[in-house]
Amino acid sequence: MVLQGQEVRLADTITVNGTAYPIPDDPRVSLLDFLRQHIGLTGTKKGCDHGQCGACTVLVNGVRINSCLTLATMHDGDDVTTIEGLGTPEEPSALQRAFVEHDGYQCGYCTPGQICSATAMLEEIAAGWPSDASETLNGKVRLSSEEIRERMSGNLCRCGAYANIVAAIEDVAAGDRS
């Protein structure tokens, strides 16, 4: 007997920024299209739709992923955080504020993905995860600009605002340390 997906679901909903939403019927809907078109959270952007740009980066249960390469229907019971959930214009997160202060963008299209990505990256560094740029796999991560660039390489910026993006992240990371 073939059990349908529904029968082994953890929940009938996906939680996004604290609100539960029903899972779409069409299994083809990517998490990205679900966020933008089904529940109207257009902060998350579609750049390539193929995992090649990072504009669609969101946090799922605190982990950053490309929302274009996963199906909404696979996320029953999961907790998703998008750029809208990180802060508001009145109360921006530290990274949101730092991107504004440092001009960490030009057109702004890649920015939501950059900020979601950087938010998770600081957690990964706090957890001591190494990267390809780390000299050793086991030591404490030294937050150089090389480390930030490697860890943020999944987020492309066609405007080339990279220098200011790195400065914004360094600023927040320095604040975290003090």
Binding site: T70, A120, S153, G154
Partner: peptide, 8 residues
């Protein structure tokens, strides 16, 4: 790949 892809 990238951190986002490796996470999935």
């Amino acid at each position: 790949a990238t951190q986002q892809l490796r996470n999935k």
